[in-house]
Amino acid sequence: MNKPLQYIAICLLIAVIFTSCRSTQRVIEEGKVSTKLSAKDVIREHSKREVDFKTLQGKVKIELTQNQLQQGYTFNIRMEKDKAIWLNAPLGLARLFITPEKVQFYNKTDNTYFDGGYALLSDVAGIDLDFYKVQNILLGQAIYDIKAEPHKVSISENSYALQPNEQDALIELFYLINPSHFKLDSLQLFQQTERRMLQVDYGTYQTLDKEILPENIRIIAVEDSEEVVITMEFKSLSLNEDVRFPFRIPSGYEEIIIK
């Protein structure tokens, strides 16, 4: 997988800003799947769990594994829901800023930057990306409007397996939904012709101000025989405080060109 796809993967991850050690509790998963629930029942319960907040801030530890090499970083992270996501490395060595209009990133360690829209990133990633899909992936919600088309449901171990009645010819989509809190256990996207796969696994959830939010997330991105794995852990986070998003690409940096 080429270097720009690593940046895309990080962009998909940084919006998960959910936990506060002072006020969170782990969700205890006691529910069991029921054969009596229809696909519409599962969709309705899942839709009720959409997270409601204004701002989030704190720290996130991200570990990336590629070609048997592992790198770990801890970032400051800020977010205004539906408007902005900001990530800052220690000493300001790297900074990323995402809005619904564009994605911006710079890295002081190699004097490079990226400044572009989602259309270009979508072409490279092979997934139709936008700001709101990124949010949903990282909030444990379905990335498409599951009320807009018929779905069918089955049981996979102790999850509800939800999929469209008619899969897209280019991308197969599957949701595994938890029977306790009806958030995602897993999101799976397959592009057989391109030999690509994206899987987002939600290890545990917790509650913060009555909201159910991911606690640990693991993302696996595969292209041909190459695999990138990213895990995230969130610490010292708080809700609904005033936040700022300082961002300016330094002069003289070389632009990252995605082809």
Rank of each mutant, 00 (worst) to 15 (best):
residue 169 A to V: 05
residue 161 A to H: 13
residue 168 D to P: 01
residue 131 F to Y: 15
residue 151 H to N: 09
residue 131 F to I: 00
residue 140 G to L: 06
residue 175 Y to R: 04
residue 187 L to S: 10
residue 132 Y to V: 11
residue 158 N to M: 07
residue 151 H to D: 05
residue 170 L to M: 05
residue 137 I to N: 05
residue 129 L to D: 07
residue 157 E to W: 10
residue 179 P to S: 04
residue 174 F to Q: 11
residue 169 A to P: 02
residue 136 N to Q: 13
residue 145 D to R: 02
residue 171 I to W: 09
residue 181 H to E: 12
residue 175 Y to V: 08
residue 164 P to F: 01
residue 155 I to A: 10
residue 145 D to L: 01
residue 139 L to F: 04
residue 160 Y to I: 00
residue 147 K to I: 03
residue 160 Y to D: 13
residue 174 F to Y: 15
residue 175 Y to Q: 07
residue 142 A to Y: 07
residue 133 K to L: 08
residue 166 E to K: 14
residue 158 N to A: 01
residue 186 S to A: 00
residue 163 Q to L: 07
residue 178 N to A: 12
residue 177 I to W: 11
residue 179 P to D: 14
residue 176 L to K: 07
residue 161 A to S: 08
residue 165 N to M: 14
residue 153 V to Q: 01
residue 142 A to Q: 08
residue 150 P to K: 12
residue 129 L to P: 00
residue 174 F to M: 12
residue 144 Y to P: 05
residue 178 N to P: 10
residue 180 S to Y: 12
residue 171 I to E: 14
residue 161 A to T: 09
residue 137 I to C: 03
residue 177 I to Y: 13
residue 181 H to M: 14
residue 144 Y to K: 07
residue 152 K to L: 06
residue 164 P to I: 07
residue 175 Y to C: 03
residue 134 V to Q: 00
residue 150 P to I: 00
residue 161 A to Y: 10
residue 168 D to M: 00
residue 165 N to H: 13
residue 143 I to Y: 07
residue 159 S to T: 04
residue 143 I to C: 11
residue 136 N to K: 15
residue 134 V to C: 04
residue 136 N to I: 00
residue 169 A to F: 02
residue 178 N to R: 11
residue 186 S to K: 15
residue 143 I to F: 02
residue 176 L to C: 00
residue 180 S to I: 05
residue 140 G to D: 10
residue 141 Q to D: 13
residue 164 P to D: 14
residue 185 D to S: 10
residue 175 Y to G: 03
residue 153 V to C: 02
residue 174 F to E: 15
residue 162 L to K: 04
residue 137 I to Q: 03
residue 166 E to F: 01
residue 175 Y to T: 04
residue 164 P to Q: 03
residue 168 D to W: 04
residue 137 I to M: 15
residue 183 K to I: 00
residue 142 A to D: 00
residue 148 A to E: 15
residue 160 Y to K: 05
residue 167 Q to R: 14
residue 166 E to W: 12
residue 165 N to P: 02
residue 177 I to V: 14
residue 173 L to Q: 07
residue 146 I to A: 03
residue 174 F to S: 02
residue 148 A to Y: 11
residue 150 P to E: 01
residue 151 H to A: 06
residue 159 S to A: 12
residue 132 Y to H: 10
residue 141 Q to N: 11
residue 183 K to N: 14
residue 140 G to M: 11
residue 146 I to F: 11
